[in-house]
Write a protein that binds this DNA or RNA. Structure first.
Length: 666
RNA sequence: GCGCCCAUAGCUCAGUUGGAUAGAGCGAUUGACUACGAAUCAAUAGGUCGGAGGUUCGAAUCCUUCUGGGCGCGCCA
């Protein structure tokens, strides 16, 4: 459980502790979970306790009567201004706002988990055979944001991007290069040099090639079998290694992988390790896993039925109903009758490694340099000195919801092996796909059927080359923000304007991907993604820019404004209707750390995204209503400046967790 | 056939542990730049929370069922 110390939660705990005491002493009642909420309007207070409703039946008394009795015992409570009964029997608790504001402003919030976890987050994991598209962006942005949340909460996190460099998808582009284009290994090398000289991207080239190959397999009915055989032979050649197909695969997949890292770096997304399928194969991870699985009885050899001759396991979620005789036809095949292992089998071995349970490690080489750290890649033989990877206590796999079943099977295997603790800390960080609206598809020049046109969205498909490429989208966003920045800030030099445009574009894109909850299908539309108004990243960045402008004009800083606030009694400014509105901003800001805990507990970054937007919105409202720089009362001016400072501090903090920066001007 | 997910304002979505009058953005209408930056703010209109039962002091939220949609279920990866 993540714990962080901050005013809102601290006062909440104090209130609940006191309430428990009262219930124990007055009614001899112990309640496990005491519900606590926020009243619908801030004028009712900061906390609402519906406890009287629950007690009404037990005590055979009216809720309001019980609430009154409890209130009589609750007060006085340090830090609280008072309690009231409201509605049918709510107990509303009101904070001493002046005191709470001082504590929020002093803001020495330490966030330290009770038990820091060594966590492993795996995200992105794009097949290295084509350019990244919008769906991959959602994956990477969700994963990267979750990494930031865990790190903000004080956990140690390794970021992994799994690379399936020996799968069918890579085989398909190798078939394209060697059989459609009829290129040799040397010719492929030449082609890659030519592409680079022309400024063309290899991942874009393969995007089209992959679509062509997929068509080619199906194009000629008479040739179909033969072509599928070419594909299969190529796949096996790549898996085995030591031949030209494998060399072409390595060459191309490595180049495309570099491109993916570049694309993601544009959004501030970095990785620590790139574990590859090729090493999982060549270092024989499976053999070790197989021994464990056989020994524990998770896998058993099927003697009859359709899976005869295979090693199988009980499917996750399958009931224990084994009344009937005969083989479990629903079982999941892990080792085929020809002795080869399936995808889920390899995944089990890989996940044993992640938890440090396999008894074997990768070798490692340096692959990519970031500003302040190195990204390593798995290897058969590597460098003697390298960081320690694997052996995590908790893992998070950012994988789309369609892979729920295979993920569940891996967890099932871990549990069957007796690794129940690890199984409980295995999170399939599931999310829904990004699809295109029919209108968007038509804008991109795709021909769509009448049936598709009537749907709310159309699934993207790499095989058909149907989708929005990540770099194209980022380019479009930057072009749009650049235009705005250029016209708003002609006084700035080009380089500065460029930097600001990029930050706004990234803010817009990341917020767009984060504002939807994970299990909502995003129907992608350029109009919405390219919007900078309303509930968007730039809206929040603009709120921060306004606070920066205020401190610049006031000749001070946010830190100084908070220090200057120390001696001010804000109580008179936090009463009445205007005071309620301003207090709303303070309270929202104070709850930021609470949101961090909630987002980690629920693995849902969208809550923080919404929170940040709400805070920006309430500040914008405050900004319009209360003019800070012209305030005549010096004490009140300090208070208003502190309001802007607290907002800036918490908004920048929340935005940084979302991977969104706030420029000086925009 | 089995399993999982979804249905909330014209559109796109929030609604976390069951709690007070179901919220936001966009779009629409109207108003606000001689005040800290209008990528902004204010106001108005807009809802049988897919239907029907049930549990509960209380249901958009939990249970049952129906309807409509999506996804997954290979000795592919």
């Amino acid at each position: 459980m993540v714990y962080s110390s901050h005013v809102y939660l601290q006062e909440q705990r104090k209130l609940l502790d006191r309430l428990r005491d009262v219930l124990r002493v007055k009614y001899q009642i112990e309640l496990e979970n005491l519900a606590i909420e926020q009243p619908p309007d801030i004028k009712f207070g900061e906390y609402a306790l519906p406890v009287a409703f629950e007690l009404a039946r037990l005590l055979k008394k009216a809720p309001r009567k019980i609430a009154e009795e409890i209130i009589a015992e609750l007060s006085p409570l340090e830090g609280f201004a008072g309690f009231e009964v409201a509605g049918a029997g709510y107990i509303n608790a009101k904070l001493d706002r002046g005191r709470a504001a001082r504590e929020i402003a002093s803001g020495t919030e330490k966030i330290a988990p009770e038990t820091p976890l060594h966590a492993l987050v795996e995200h992105t994991s794009i097949n290295p055979n084509k350019a990244a598209h919008v769906g991959h962006l959602r994956n990477a942005i969700l994963g990267d944001t979750f990494v930031r949340l865990l790190r903000a909460a004080g956990h140690q996190v390794d970021v992994q991007n799994y690379i399936d460099n020996t799968g069918v998808q890579v085989a398909d582009v190798v078939v394209g290069l060697m059989h459609l284009e009829k290129l040799s290994l040397e010719a492929v090398q030449t082609l890659m040099q030519q592409l680079e000289q022309r400024g063309e991207k290899i991942d874009y080239y393969c995007w089209d090639l992959y679509a062509r190959v997929s068509q080619w397999y199906e194009a000629d009915e008479a040739e179909k079998q033969a072509r599928k055989q070419v594909r299969l032979d190529t796949l096996h050649a790549i898996e085995n290694g030591g031949n030209d197909a494998a060399r072409v695969a390595d060459l191309v997949s490595t180049a495309i992988l570099k491109r993916h890292l570049e694309t993601m770096l544009r959004l501030g997304i970095e990785y620590d390790l790139l574990p590859r399928e090729s090493e999982i194969l060549h270092l024989h991870f499976w053999n070790l896993a197989f021994e464990q699985l056989k020994e524990s009885g998770v896998l058993y050899y099927e003697e009859e039925g359709k899976n005869k001759g295979c090693w199988v396991m009980k499917r996750a979620g399958a009931g224990q109903a084994e009344d009937q005789d005969g083989p479990d036809e629903d079982a999941k095949v892990i080792v085929r009758s020809n002795g080869t292992v399936t995808y889920v089998g390899k995944d089990i071995a890989y996940h044993l490694w992640k938890f440090g349970l396999l008894g074997r490690d990768f070798a490692y080489r340096k692959f990519f340099e970031y500003a302040d750290h190195t990204c390593w890649i798995s290897a058969e033989t590597g460098e003697p000195e390298h960081p320690h990877f694997g052996g995590a206590q908790a893992i998070y796999n950012v994988i789309d919801s369609r892979q729920a079943d295979p993920q569940a099977n891996v967890v099932e295997a871990l549990r069957g092996l007796g690794y129940t603790e690890q199984a409980s800390r295995y999170t399939h960080f599931s999310y829904e796909m990004v699809a295109l609206t029919p209108r968007c598809a038509e804008e991109l020049g795709y021909e769509i059927s009448d049936e598709d046109r009537s749907r709310p969205y159309i699934e993207v498909s790499g095989r058909k080359g149907f989708g929005v490429k990540a770099d194209d989208l980022i380019d479009k966003l930057i072009a749009a923000t650049q235009k705005e920045v250029d016209s708003r800030h002609p006084e700035l030099i080009a380089k500065e304007r460029e930097q600001i445009a990029k930050e706004i574009a990234v803010g817009a894109l990341r917020y767009f991907m984060l504002k939807y909850t994970r299990n909502t299908v995003i129907a992608f539309d350029f109009n919405e993604a390219l919007s900078f108004e309303g509930e968007t990243g730039p809206y929040m960045q603009y709120a921060v820019v306004r606070t920066r402008s205020i401190f610049r004009k006031a000749g001070t800083t946010a830190e100084q404004a908070l220090a200057d606030f120390a001696g001010v009694d804000a109580t008179p400014y936090l009463t009445g209707e205007d005071g309620d509105g301003i207090w709303q901003v303070w309270l929202r800001a104070a709850r930021t750390s609470l949101l961090l805990d909630q987002c980690i507990a629920t693995a849902e970054p969208a809550y923080l995204a919404k929170h940040a937007f709400q805070l920006a919105k309430e500040f914008s409202n405050f900004y319009r209503k209360h003019h800070i720089l012209t305030e005549a009362d010096p004490a009140r001016k300090k208070f208003l400046l502190a309001t802007a400072a607290v907002t800036q501090r918490e908004l920048i903090r929340a935005l940084s967790w979302l991977g969104i920066s706030a420029p000086e001007v925009m």
